[in-house]
Simulated scan of single mutants.
Amino acid sequence: MKHDHISFKEYTMDNLSLPSNIADLIPRDNMAHVVHEMVERIPMETFLAYYKGGAPPPIIRK
């Protein structure tokens, strides 16, 4: 399914509902920091070439 409007959920290391900055809990020499830096450097256009559009339906809690 292809959509005219492409949108992504915003991701930052600071917007988790866990501690205010989870990066502070990860040791500085942990591989998670390397992976985070690598992903942040990938141009968005790289992902768009493979993105077909759409998103899962929202979770509705009762």
Rank of each mutant, 00 (worst) to 15 (best):
G54C: 09
L18M: 09
I60K: 13
R28F: 03
G53K: 02
Y11I: 00
L18G: 06
E37V: 04
K62V: 14
D24I: 05
I22K: 11
H33S: 09
I59R: 12
P58Q: 06
Y11V: 01
E10H: 02
H33L: 04
M38I: 10
K2E: 02
M38K: 09
M38N: 08
G53T: 07
I26Q: 12
H36T: 00
P58M: 03
R28P: 10
G53S: 06
M38W: 09
M31Q: 05
D14Q: 03
A32Y: 15
M44C: 03
M44T: 00
M44Y: 06
A49W: 04
F8P: 00
D29T: 03
T46N: 14
H33F: 01
K2Y: 03
T46C: 15
V34P: 06
G53V: 08
M31F: 06
P43K: 11
R61A: 15
L48R: 03
R41I: 01
I60P: 11
S20Y: 01
D29R: 11
L25F: 12
R61G: 12
P19F: 01
E40A: 14
S20M: 05
A49C: 06
M38V: 09
H36C: 01
M31V: 01
R61Y: 08
N15P: 11
N15I: 03
I59Q: 13
K62E: 15
E40S: 12
G53H: 04
H5L: 11
T12I: 05
N21I: 04
P19D: 09
E37Y: 02
S20G: 12
K9H: 04
P57G: 14
H5S: 13
S7M: 07
R28K: 15
A32H: 12
D24F: 01
I22E: 00
P27D: 14
R61F: 07
M1S: 10
P27G: 11
N15A: 13
L18C: 07
F47A: 01
R41C: 04
I42C: 14
P19I: 00
Y11W: 02
I22P: 04
I22L: 11
A49T: 05
P43A: 07
Y50L: 15
R28E: 04
E37Q: 07
D24S: 10
S7Q: 08
K62F: 12
P27I: 14
Y50R: 14
I22D: 00
D24K: 01
I60N: 13
E37L: 05
D14C: 01
T46H: 15
I26L: 15
T12Y: 01
R61K: 10
Y51T: 13
M31A: 05
L16K: 13
I59D: 04
I59M: 14
K52W: 09
E10L: 03
I59H: 12
P58S: 11
K62G: 15
V35Q: 02
E45S: 14
H3L: 07
K9P: 02
N30G: 09
H5D: 11
E40R: 10
I26D: 10
F8W: 02
Y11A: 01
R61W: 06
N21A: 07
N21H: 10
K52N: 05
P27Q: 13
N15H: 11
I60D: 06
D4C: 09
D14K: 04
M1A: 11
G53I: 08
M44K: 15
E10I: 01
A23E: 03
I59L: 15
P56I: 14
K2V: 06
D24W: 00
K9Y: 03
N30V: 06
